[in-house]
Nucleic acid binder design. Structure first.
Lengths: 173, 173
DNA sequence: ATGTTATATTTGCGCTAGCAAGTAACTTGG
DNA sequence: CCAAGTTACTTGCTAGCGCAAATATAACAT
């Protein structure tokens, strides 16, 4: 299997193994790294496709609505959303544009600070987010957890927790 | 720690835990899933940023050049590149546009098939890809492997290998 | 030979994403 | 009280990505 493994690695990790070679990373390391990125890519593609098809929501849109759904009064300021979600404020502003268009949320002037805008979930939005969360949850189970045993899940959770520990937010702006 | 863990999960996985709740996924499952996506996002952002800053290459561009670098005669057809890289052909065509502009590769008519185009690495491209691979390899070690022990790497490699096993290509088009 | 179907690539469009610049409003030091 | 600096948001721009349509060539069946 070592030969087949090496072949796999050469294919999937070709972009950082130079002509000089394989000494750069071990086969296992290459698999761990490229596997992580590739798994994330496929999972995202698959799940976001379902979400888009069934509810017309991107991942970010669902994340935003989901955060509103658990916030007091269904309301959060855009800045808070951006920080929470690790997105730029400009992106959040435009996601909100789209959701407001569809009347899933409303922009409201913040009474305490005239600069600030509250995104506020509508009844329509609250209904949709519940449905979409159900779709998404089912998709996650189907595409991810059904293929993993308990031990693997435990280990992944522990590994990612430690990796993300020194967590500066992923978006600077 | 269970309380803090639950808090973490509520924050990071808020988008699929509805008002009704936490019953949907276990805390560990939520961490494994969101951790995967978040880790991938940060890693990509960090590494691609370095690559862009030092060599003006995106991840895809490096992948493409890297594949040419190990191909016979530094040459591959666009279709092959697209399949290998899990990108759409249209995307590959445009990445090639950019790299051709910078004279890191050339488009050549395939002698055997007048429809096909070969992307062919130039000397400049071959030099750059080696440098960029070095940068990238160092970045991967620094941002990823330095934070993991041997056992974790082994486990990640095994898990992702089995997850990606039934691997239909991630890009349909 | 020739029409049909399949393959290879390019181009137009729409989406997500961030950064930079612009505007409005809050805060603070003098 | 007001000028300088900070914060909140919006808007214009760029880049990556895929899909769908357009074009050109190949392969195949009649």
């Amino acid at each position: 299997m070592s030969a087949m493994l090496a072949g796999e690695v050469a294919t999937r990790a070709g972009y950082f193994l130079g002509a000089e070679g394989v000494a750069c990373l071990s086969a296992e390391q290459a698999l761990a790294f490229t596997g992580l990125l590739e798994t994330s890519r496929r999972l995202t593609r698959e799940l976001e496709g379902e979400l888009e098809a069934k509810h017309g929501l991107s991942f970010s849109a669902l994340g935003l609505l989901g955060r509103l759904a658990v916030a007091p009064r269904g309301t959060l300021r855009l800045t808070i959303l951006a920080q929470d979600m690790g997105l730029s404020l400009s992106r959040v502003s435009r996601v909100v544009d789209g959701l407001e268009e569809r009347e899933l949320l409303e922009r409201q002037q913040c009474p305490a600070d005239a600069r600030a805008i509250n995104a506020c979930l509508t009844a329509r939005g609250a209904t949709l987010v519940r449905q979409a969360q159900a779709t998404h949850g089912a998709g996650v189970r189907r595409h991810f957890f059904e293929k993993l045993d308990k031990e693997q899940v435990r280990m992944l959770a522990a590994t990612f927790t430690s990796l993300l520990d020194g967590a500066q937010p992923s978006c600077v702006a």
